[in-house]
Design a protein around this nucleic acid. Structure first.
Lengths: 221, 221
DNA sequence: GGGATAACCTACTCACGAGTAGATTGGCGG
DNA sequence: CCGCCAATCTACTCGTGAGTAGGTTATCCC
């Protein structure tokens, strides 16, 4: 390596910059290997610094992971908040939200994998953080659902099940995002439309009082 | 400890029995702590044997985990297969399937947590195993959806999106199962009904040619 | 230019947990 | 009743990776 290269590589950067580099590296490595399998050495290497720097700036492995979770969760929430229109009908609100969500996942795969796959599995405080974000989303969705029909058809049942259905919808979106990772080539908007078609008509018919119910089973011949 | 107690505790059991005890313990411990955090020592302790027994009977930690995954996946699939009625209409097939699924989760929480939360996060062969089970479920659901309407309304769009929607539904079921863990007191049948109401009417309207589509957005004031 | 200080590194310690060697003993077939 | 073997244990090794001690040097500012 030439002297110039050496000097360029060794150039010292302000803490602020390094912290971002390290956090970026951490998100990538955590998303690749998962919390436990990821090593601080690899994170340091990917970030282009040595291990003590990581500890000096971001603290222990747990703290580093927590920082990643927090940062990525914030970014996701902001992306959705920026994309959602709250001056429109509930269905449009939901659609704009889903749209933003899929766009975010599409252009931030590592972030999504860390949030969805890793944080939940690790448990403890981390899962808490993510759970809260998830809960906020669910409540939001639940509010939309209730607002859309003001329970005009089904009353008590809808109230009880509202949160559960919201959870199901959020899960469906997450699952669809995962499916997307293995089947790229579909635009985010199309994904969002599919999901809207799947669930909104379901929600719509629900509030209109139309319900599916199991028929009696006759024993097989 | 008295001599009798000592003898009872120390009584030797045939390999077959010990293997089951160890596997049971492993599922419980893995579900509590996750793959990496779980220690072979704790598994041995919970199983009531010493560590070398675990290695002698079930092999390495990886092998043990794989065995757990396989066993629990089989149990889950069998439970669903036993519960599903394939001599009835597609909607009833789906309902009976969901019903069995929720019943299984309700009475086998540890199994479910290992399969859903841990196996995916660990990655590698394990995730493969679970992914395959998941894929089989998704294909099955997709078949139901297609069969139910024979694409009578939307054609190509439905074909492309069928698998994605099935993935979404499976995800919704999984997510609802997770929600259930935090909100017990709802019977499994009710959960299944909620989900049917949510998605089936969506599917139904889809195949009937009814679609939701975003309206044009006018900029806010 | 020359301290001061923050950026940065090499090279360690140390705990924890996977995996094992080798001794011990209950219980069954003869 | 006895020998044999499978069942079982205690007590280790050893690799790996988190976390750190202590020194070095670039860069800023006067």
């Amino acid at each position: 390596m030439s002297e110039t290269e050496r000097k360029r590589r060794v150039r010292r950067l302000p803490r602020e910059v390094r912290e971002r580099q390290i956090a970026d590296a951490a998100v990538e490595v955590f998303s690749r290997h998962g919390y436990h399998t990821a090593s601080m050495d690899e994170i340091a290497e990917v970030a282009g610094v040595s291990k003590p720097m990581v500890y000096a700036y971001l603290g222990s492995k747990e703290e580093l992971f927590a920082a990643c979770i927090r940062r990525e969760a914030q970014r996701l929430l902001k992306a959705i908040a920026d994309g959602v229109r709250n001056d429109v009908e509930p269905d449009m609100q939901l659609w704009t939200g889903l749209r933003s969500f899929f766009h975010f996942v599409g252009s931030n795969r590592s972030s999504w994998m860390v949030l969805h796959r890793q944080a939940l599995a690790v448990g403890g405080e981390f899962a808490e953080e993510v759970s809260q974000m998830r809960s906020r989303s669910i409540e939001l969705v639940a509010a939309l659902v209730v607002a859309s029909g003001t329970r005009k058809g089904i009353g008590e049942q809808a109230e009880k099940s509202g949160e559960a259905l919201a959870a199901a919808l959020v899960g469906a979106a997450e699952s669809l995002a995962d499916w997307w990772l293995d089947h790229p080539g579909v635009p985010a908007d199309v994904l969002a439309s599919w999901l809207m078609n799947l669930v909104w008509l379901g929600f719509g018919d629900l509030v209109a009082g139309e319900v599916w119910s199991p028929k009696d089973l006759t024993p097989p011949a």
